[in-house]
Design a protein around this nucleic acid. Structure first.
Lengths: 236, 236
DNA sequence: AGCAGTAATGACCGATAGGTCAGCAAAGCC
DNA sequence: GGCTTTGCTGACCTATCGGTCATTACTGCT
């Protein structure tokens, strides 16, 4: 984004790859892999078509690189979350969920997600990378929090422990809904987040008291954590 | 699927559209709209390329028709569900959820869903049809059941009432997961369904007592609550 | 059998877009 | 300024594929 306004050639070996990557990602997200044209990507990057191929051998390679470039930060974020900070499991889980909703609503994460799912069959390695960086990592974090919560008596021994992906299912739903049906049927953001929390903590509630401290509406001040109860009720 | 084994021309004006539709759907689901080739669809239908165009003017038209052909049954199913049968709201909701999981696990519904979401931007009308037939209809049914449950005191006044799509979020997650990550990380079917029920009825529980009659684990003996109906499901 | 009428065919067309490469010009060096 | 290196260019090549249409041959009618 410098002074290429006219069309004097400029040689900037260093800056190109990043710009092309960004342009590619933009075109791919808004048109999809197939319909995106290399020439448009080039123009968007302020570069001639041939130049793109000097940095990425094929369209597929560019696509993978572009998506990967957005997967890296995810990894970093998950890494940070792994260094479990102080706080009750309830607070941690609540924070994870609220963050997920923010990510879904205020970033291009849903588009990336959609692309990965869309082109999955065609780019198995990309699917695998996404799984490793996002899905598996996320599951690991969640599982750790859940285990801690169970140990502390905050959570009961729920089936969610065996299907941790369920914890984020409502966020996935929010992402897909926003991406596709926002026009026809806008997502009720507040209710979505609130309902999400109700579902998760309702399922995990260690006894008669549901985890309503964690389920206060988003705007309200942070709730205090519940005192850990003894013996979580076990079924079966 | 008759005796076109050799290649004598056969004129079967009646049977063609259905066969072509089916072939198209198959190719579209396994390759996606863009990569699917009309010639392959034709061959798969046991027909020459030109013939396909006698029944469907363009590739887009065939695609829409193919997807629509699978949307119709959905409508019928929803219709049936709308005629609310006897039973408590809890039982009805449980049945809806169990059915959704069966649909997700044992049919090609996830593929259809994926295609609609994938090609949504390119086929807005298809997105709209899908929304009208599946999403809106589903929400309507769910909302009706929830309202009944609240009126009967079975459910509390949850945020889920304002975001009914959340009820089926875990099923969506199951569908997407199965479609994309099954290889890398098989879905724990039982735990998914069980967790799903826990989340929904946990959030809706009208008081301290969570709706455990609806959340009995798959393998365990009959739930210990006095509930004459709602036989525990038997599968696996 | 002869004869429409028309379903079905597949060679062909034209547009699109991924990928190439011979040459050009900017940057660096003397 | 002149020379070399090499990042960059865009005209060009070519494979692919949606869509067409003149021709073929199957079916039913008389």
């Amino acid at each position: 984004m410098t002074d290429r306004s006219a069309k004097p050639r400029r040689r900037r070996k260093e800056a190109r790859p990043g710009e092309i990557l960004e342009a590619g990602l933009a075109e791919f997200t808004e048109r999809g892999f197939g319909p995106a044209r290399m020439e448009d990507i080039a123009r968007r990057a302020g570069v001639a078509k041939g130049t793109v191929f000097r940095y990425f051998p094929t369209k597929e390679a560019l696509f993978e690189a572009a998506v990967q470039s957005r997967l890296a930060p995810v990894l970093a974020g998950a890494q940070a979350a792994l260094a479990d900070p102080p706080g009750t499991a309830t607070e941690m889980l609540r924070a994870l969920i609220v963050d997920a909703h923010r990510g879904v609503m205020d970033s291009d994460m849903p588009q990336i997600m959609r692309m990965v799912l869309t082109e999955g069959p065609r780019f198995p390695q990309l699917l695998e990378a996404y799984h490793r960086l996002s899905m598996a990592r996320g599951q690991e974090v969640i599982q750790r929090v859940l285990a801690r919560g169970v140990a502390a008596g905050e959570f009961r021994d729920s089936a969610l422990l065996r299907a941790p992906m369920l914890i984020m299912a409502p966020a996935l739903m929010a992402a897909m809904w926003r991406l596709n049906f926002e026009r026809l049927n806008p997502v009720p953001r507040e209710a979505l987040l609130e309902g999400h929390l109700e579902m998760v903590f309702g399922a995990l509630a260690s006894d008669g008291r549901r985890g309503e401290p964690a389920v206060s509406p988003p705007g309200s001040p942070a709730p205090r954590s519940p005192r850990p109860r003894s013996s979580p009720r076990r079924r079966s």
